[in-house]
Amino acid sequence: MLEKNIEGEDVDKSALSVILDDFEKHGYDVQYRVLTAADYGVPQMRRRVIIMGIRKDLGSVDNEFYPQQIFDETGELTGRPWRTSKDGIDDLWDKVNNPNIPNHTLKDISRAKFYPGKKMQGNNRIAENRPAPTIRAEHHGNIEAHYRTTVEDATDMSGWRRLSVRECARLQSFPDSFNFVTSASSAYKAVGNAVPPVMAWHIARSVFFTLKQLEQIEFEKK
Results as ranks from 00 to 15, higher is better:
residue 12 D to W: 11
residue 16 L to S: 09
residue 16 L to C: 06
residue 21 D to T: 12
residue 22 D to C: 08
residue 23 F to H: 08
residue 24 E to T: 15
residue 24 E to F: 10
residue 29 D to R: 11
residue 29 D to V: 09
residue 31 Q to T: 15
residue 31 Q to E: 15
residue 32 Y to L: 05
residue 37 A to S: 12
residue 38 A to Q: 10
residue 42 V to H: 05
residue 45 M to G: 01
residue 46 R to Q: 06
residue 48 R to F: 07
residue 57 D to K: 08
residue 60 S to P: 05
residue 61 V to M: 11
residue 62 D to E: 15
residue 62 D to Y: 08
residue 64 E to C: 15
residue 67 P to K: 04
residue 69 Q to D: 00
residue 71 F to M: 04
residue 72 D to F: 02
residue 73 E to G: 08
residue 73 E to I: 11
residue 75 G to E: 02
residue 79 G to Y: 03
residue 82 W to F: 13
residue 82 W to T: 00
residue 90 D to V: 09
residue 98 N to Y: 06
residue 98 N to E: 12
residue 101 I to M: 07
residue 115 Y to D: 11
residue 125 R to H: 04
residue 132 A to V: 04
residue 133 P to Y: 02
residue 143 I to W: 00
residue 144 E to G: 12
residue 144 E to F: 14
residue 145 A to T: 04
residue 146 H to L: 02
residue 152 E to N: 11
residue 155 T to D: 15
residue 157 M to F: 06
residue 159 G to F: 00
residue 160 W to V: 03
residue 162 R to L: 01
residue 165 V to K: 00
residue 166 R to S: 04
residue 170 R to L: 05
residue 183 S to Q: 05
residue 183 S to A: 00
residue 195 V to F: 07
residue 203 I to G: 00
residue 206 S to Q: 03
residue 212 K to L: 14
residue 214 L to F: 05
residue 222 K to A: 13
